[in-house]
Design a binder for these strands. Structure first.
Length: 235
DNA sequence: GCGACAG
DNA sequence: ATCTTGTCGC
């Protein structure tokens, strides 16, 4: 277990140090496990909302029953912004508060679904992989944008896919979750396969483009941020 | 050097 | 991410 204070203490102070952390930790990503069976057990969505002007960040973790998509448990955490947004270094901005929210859960989270990328990353160590290595949990990343990667448009029906490419390398998959709607971009985080990650994403999108996990976590962290702003009106 | 760039 | 109204469509 990583206690939160040591996590904060070791947090990189600048971009160079952050990239060094990624280079050091990426070797710990586990890629030879298939991952939790899609649609079974628990699945947890995590997301973060910011108020840069007040230096506030709120994270949420929402646990769903994978079979019914009913909410089983919710947890939030509020903190100070620990890093600026830098493409490729998103994890350093989101992870401390996300880890705090996960730590507040009574139940084991099961699979963790992140709003962003895992292996699909300039150094193959995006948010989902980083969170997985720090917590030991199986993780996947489901992003709304292709970032710097290339892809061909998947066919129109829900479930269609196309490789997400960094040059010749497939780093993830563009996955259509709704007929005729812009795809989402799925990548492996930690301890899951890409097929598993895509199957989970389809299970989590019976009605909307975005996974139910992400939608629930997004709504909850916004609420938590709003409440934190009421509690700390001035800056 | 310039532009692009998860959230 | 966040700032923001109405509007088109199932």
């Amino acid at each position: 277990m990583n206690d939160l204070e040591s996590l904060a203490d070791r947090w990189p102070a600048d971009e160079r140090a952050a990239r060094a952390v990624q280079d050091e930790l990426r070797g710990r990503v586990v890629l030879d496990e298939p991952g939790p069976r899609p649609g079974t057990g628990l699945v947890t969505g995590v997301d973060v909302a910011y108020d840069d002007t007040r230096d506030l960040v709120a994270a949420a973790a929402v646990v769903l029953d994978a079979a019914t998509l009913d909410v089983v448990e919710e947890s939030t955490a509020v903190g100070r912004i620990s890093f600026p947004y830098v493409p490729g270094l998103l994890a350093f901005r989101e992870i401390p508060t996300v880890v705090a929210a996960l730590a507040g859960l009574a139940a084991g989270p099961g699979l963790v679904v992140c709003d962003g990328y895992g292996l699909a990353h300039p150094r193959r160590f995006g948010l989902a992989s980083h969170l997985g290595v720090l917590t030991g949990l199986p993780t996947i990343g489901v992003a709304k944008n292709p970032f710097t990667f290339a892809y061909e448009e998947p066919d129109a029906p829900r479930g269609s896919t196309a490789p997400l490419l960094d040059g010749e390398e497939e780093v993830g998959r563009a996955l259509r979750t709704r007929d005729g709607v812009k795809p989402v971009f799925v990548s492996v985080g930690h301890r899951t396969s890409l097929d598993t990650a895509c199957a989970w994403t389809l299970n989590l999108t019976p009605k909307y483009r975005q996974p139910e996990t992400t939608r629930r976590a997004d709504a909850l962290c916004r609420r938590a941020l709003a409440e934190a702003q009421e509690g700390a009106p001035r800056t």
